[in-house]
Simulated assay, not measured.
Amino acid sequence: MDQRRRNIILGGAAVGLSYLFSRGLFAANTEKYLPLKAAIYSPWLANQVALTSNNTLFLGLPRYSPDKATPSLARREQDGSLVPFPNNSWNEWAPEKDGRNAFVYLNSVHIFADDTVWCVDQGSLSPGLFPAQYATPQPGAQKLVQLDADSGKILNILRFNDDILPPGAKMNDLRFHGSSLYISDSGLGGIIVHDFQTGKTIRRLSGRSVVKSSPTKIPAILAHIKGKKAFTPPNSDLIEITADGKWLYWASPTGPLYRVETKLLKDTSLSDEQLASRVQHVYDNNFAGGCCMDSLGNMYFSETVTGHITLLAPSGKTAVIASSPALIRPDGTFISQDRKLYIPVKKPLASGPKDKPFVIYAVALPDQFDGIALGGPVTGQA
């Protein structure tokens, strides 16, 4: 989830809960939904979760509070404890320090077929919570970082020039297929494609309508909180790719969900205007903080306002697979190798451990739900 959206949502927690319960937006009957199980409690707010094939769990921790120190990435140890990962200067950045070789603001954490950990560092802080001078990334601070999941060794750092990341661009999330890396830009709106075989990077659909948000679809409870009168939702934010690598999907939190064939996205003989005409409108999603896709092409949306995890099948059929008052502002979900859907929740639990008030839930996925066949994780393996 982009930090601009996170600011407005966190500030409106009390207002949001009152609104939800008064409108009956949380489903009362939980028997028809898959049960939630607390997978881990965290002392830090987590917006992303990812697991290796042997279930080593990592949390992405946004640098959100100006008065509370937080690491950016944490790993669950064998004894169940959470520790900063790697436990060195990468997690010790502070304003005024150099952000080139440290985590400034992690917006996404993901794990693919090779079990390494990929992080998207936007390189700048929220102007709503920190002084405005920290809202623009230092040169080289916005980056992608790949780490060894066991040792914490930095395996790769990708930085892009102004042709790929012009001023105002914000890398949001990433997905792989084979040697191709796909990145969403939630700042200006756009899709970035990097080819590891050739080393070439292209920027596509920059600023086009299909990568822009829909300000008219901002939920009422998010539009005017604590005097903020101009909440602008991020642009292309959510991103997923089918297991066969054929289709890339993306959406702003406001929707709609779009897709395009990856062969067209990588065809530089097509102008952005021609490419935009080949983009398909898929679905008008509710305001969503995050999503994930399974190996059968089902999309799982983390709905900010409703407390639902909504499933969208390739056929177009939808179903709410999980819904609970506990799912307050769910964010970036992840499907593990043992087919559990992990859901980080950004509201501290009043009834949880005082030293670990944040929770990440897990939902065991059955073979099918409401007549929709469910798959496993998409690992990016060709």
Results as ranks from 00 to 15, higher is better:
residue 269 S to C: 00
residue 50 A to G: 12
residue 357 P to Y: 08
residue 209 S to E: 09
residue 350 A to M: 14
residue 273 E to F: 00
residue 348 P to C: 11
residue 312 L to D: 01
residue 367 D to C: 03
residue 38 A to M: 07
residue 59 L to T: 13
residue 68 K to R: 13
residue 182 Y to I: 10
residue 122 Q to M: 15
residue 118 W to N: 04
residue 21 F to T: 12
residue 205 L to G: 10
residue 99 G to K: 02
residue 264 L to T: 11
residue 306 T to W: 07
residue 107 N to D: 07
residue 337 Q to E: 07
residue 163 D to E: 14
residue 229 K to N: 13
residue 154 I to M: 06
residue 134 Y to R: 02
residue 175 R to W: 06
residue 80 G to T: 01
residue 93 W to M: 02
residue 209 S to D: 07
residue 126 S to Y: 10
residue 121 D to T: 03
residue 162 D to F: 02
residue 306 T to D: 05
residue 157 I to L: 00
residue 5 R to V: 14
residue 3 Q to G: 00
residue 48 Q to R: 02
residue 229 K to M: 05
residue 346 K to V: 14
residue 345 V to F: 06
residue 372 I to N: 09
residue 147 L to I: 01
residue 118 W to F: 12
residue 286 N to Q: 15
residue 85 F to H: 03
residue 60 G to W: 07
residue 155 L to P: 04
residue 18 S to C: 11
residue 51 L to N: 13
residue 314 P to W: 02
residue 193 V to L: 05
residue 309 I to D: 01
residue 253 P to A: 11
residue 53 S to E: 14
residue 62 P to V: 05
residue 183 I to T: 15
residue 312 L to I: 04
residue 335 I to T: 03
residue 330 P to V: 09
residue 194 H to E: 04
residue 223 A to N: 09
residue 231 F to N: 14
residue 55 N to I: 10
residue 25 L to V: 09
residue 100 R to Y: 09
residue 199 G to D: 07
residue 97 K to L: 09
residue 173 D to V: 14
residue 174 L to F: 07
residue 7 N to W: 12
residue 182 Y to S: 08
residue 162 D to Y: 01
residue 379 T to F: 11
residue 82 L to W: 00
residue 109 V to C: 06
residue 363 V to W: 00
residue 148 D to I: 00
residue 281 H to E: 11
residue 95 P to I: 00
residue 223 A to R: 10
residue 374 L to D: 02
residue 254 T to P: 07
residue 309 I to Q: 02
residue 293 M to F: 10
residue 382 A to W: 08
residue 368 Q to W: 04
residue 380 G to I: 13
residue 10 L to K: 08
residue 288 A to W: 10
residue 142 Q to T: 07
residue 228 K to P: 09
residue 220 A to F: 14
residue 64 Y to Q: 07
residue 339 R to G: 11
residue 267 D to R: 00
residue 180 S to F: 15
